[in-house]
Simulated assay, not measured.
Amino acid sequence: MTSNRPYLLRAFYDWIVDNQCTPHLVVNAEFPGAVIPTQFVQDGQIVLNISPSAVAQFNMDNTELSFNARFSGQPMRVEVPIKAVLAIYARENGEGTVFTAEEDEVFEGDDVEIQEIDTSTSQSQEEPKTKKKASHLRVIK
C-alpha cells in the first residue's frame, strides 16, 4: 500500500480551510529536498502558514507540496517533500494531527509546542511574529 500521509494531509487541509481556520504545517527543515526560508528555522523545524490567503500556486500531490509566499517581504518558492511534514493544525484552536518522522503512522502529541510564523502575502515589511503555542492534537486512526 502507498503511504497514507499525503491523503491525510489533504483531508486535514480541506477540513481546516472548510472550517474557516488557518492551516499551518510543521516541517522538518533538515529533510533532504526541502526548499524553505532557512532564516526562520528553529530547532530544525519551521512552521508554515499554508492558508489560501497566505500562499499562491499551492499544489499538493503524493510526493511534495509547493507554493509561492513572501517571507519578510521577499517572494520565495517553497517545496516540501510530503515525508518532511511533521504536523498539520489549525492556528486558531490547535486541531490537527502529528506524524512520526520515521513512519506514516499518526500519534498523539498533546504536549507538543509549536512555534508559529505568519507567511501572509501582505505587503507589510514587518518581521514575522514568533510565539509558542501548545497544541491540542488528537490521535486519528
Rank of each mutant, 00 (worst) to 15 (best):
F67I: 02
P32I: 03
T130R: 14
Q115D: 08
A101F: 04
R10Y: 01
T38Y: 09
F71M: 07
I117G: 05
R10G: 08
T121F: 14
T119K: 01
Q125C: 04
V35F: 00
N28A: 12
P81I: 06
D111I: 03
E103G: 01
A90H: 04
D14R: 12
W15E: 09
T121D: 15
E102I: 01
G44D: 07
I50C: 07
P23I: 06
I114Q: 13
M60P: 00
P23N: 05
I36Q: 05
D18L: 05
S3D: 15
Q57R: 14
K141W: 04
S3M: 02
A101D: 08
V112G: 00
E64I: 10
V98T: 07
E102A: 13
A11K: 11
E95F: 13
A84I: 03
R10V: 00
N62F: 10
K131Y: 15
S66L: 02
D61I: 01
E79Q: 15
E95L: 13
R5Y: 06
Q115A: 10
T2P: 14
L65D: 01
Q74C: 03
G94W: 04
Q42T: 11
T2I: 08
M76S: 12
P23C: 07
A84R: 07
E105H: 12
G109M: 07
E95D: 11
S120I: 03
S135F: 02
V78S: 03
A56D: 10
G73N: 08
K141Y: 09
R138D: 08
A134F: 06
V85H: 05
T97Q: 10
F12L: 10
A56E: 15
V98D: 01
V41E: 08
A69Y: 00
A90M: 05
V35L: 11
N4Y: 08
D110F: 12
L65F: 11
M76I: 13
F107H: 14
F58D: 02
T2G: 04
T97H: 00
G94I: 03
G33H: 09
L8R: 10
N49A: 05
K131E: 14
T121S: 15
E105G: 11
V139E: 07
Y89S: 08
P23V: 07
S72V: 10
M76D: 06
S135G: 13
T38M: 09
D14H: 10
N28W: 04
D43R: 12
S72E: 15
E30G: 10
K131R: 15
E126I: 08
V26M: 12
G44A: 07
